[in-house]
Amino acid sequence: MSVLVYIEHADGSVKKTSLEAVSYAKALSEKTSEGEIVAVALGSISSDELAKAGSAGASKVIHVNDDKLSSGIIQAHAEAVAQVYKQLGAKTLILSKSSLGDAVAARLAIKLDAALISNVVDLPDTGSGYKIKRSIYTGKAFAETVVNKEHKILAVKKNAVDLKSDGADAVIETVVLELSADNFATSITSTDKTTGDILLPEADIVVSGGRGMKGPENWGLIEGLAKELGAATGCSKPVSDIGWRPHHEHVGQTGVKVAPSLYVAVGISGAIQHLAGVNSSKCIVVINKDAEAPFFKAADYGIVGDAFEVLPKLTEAVKALK
């Protein structure tokens, strides 16, 4: 038996959240004795990158090296993963929650007649039955869910387990699959992507700015601190609504849900819809000139002060640490 993990890559690098999914699968298998961890990767990607799945806990990587799969066509990815899963005779599929992962997992649930549990935050309890904890109400609560199907797909939230890097080399096996034309009914005509930046949903540290930053011309201060911290940048919804920052940086209920180790919020009031996107962060720092800003109630550390004074000093202090 084995556990299959769907791994994604962006611009030729395996996503860190996908490697976390591999480590999750490994920890799961140690608990449920489901055998070896097999990762599946679709499209062109180097074997060095695939080898990272080995360190994270996989003993084998199945590489479907078909260039048609290099872009994330939802139906085609679902069909390819389903074929690999069936050939392996796996009972469990693990993946990390993402824009593509969610869309692919939903179709897979039907193809594999599997129960799909999303937003998984912990390993299952298999003492009696199969119980799993998942986050609901946009991080405001958890639900203990019993899974009754033999086949299971778990879409794991960031930070559900620690990423491991002590595994051995994985065997990489290249396979060819038959994928009919119907699976390519949607075509990607172009992409518009900032490359080189740290991706917000993957980031371990996030620095976000709100309306208190007064205008897009001041974002250099946010970016300066982010650069020193090795962080991704985010923003509140009004900031992306007015067009100061791109939509994919907007954090919250209707935007990206982040789960970094450190979230730094500058000039953001802390409306409940914003908090919904950050409440899984390990540590929250708030910088706001208003001591009554609601965000302080959700923060671990805070500075009451003017962002324009505090940010340059803080950036210097972080620099001095190195």
Binding site: T191, D192, T194, T195
Partner: peptide
């Protein structure tokens, strides 16, 4: 929407 941008389909 994809991580870090968008794709047109």
């Amino acid at each position: 929407e994809i991580e870090g941008g968008k794709e047109y389909l």
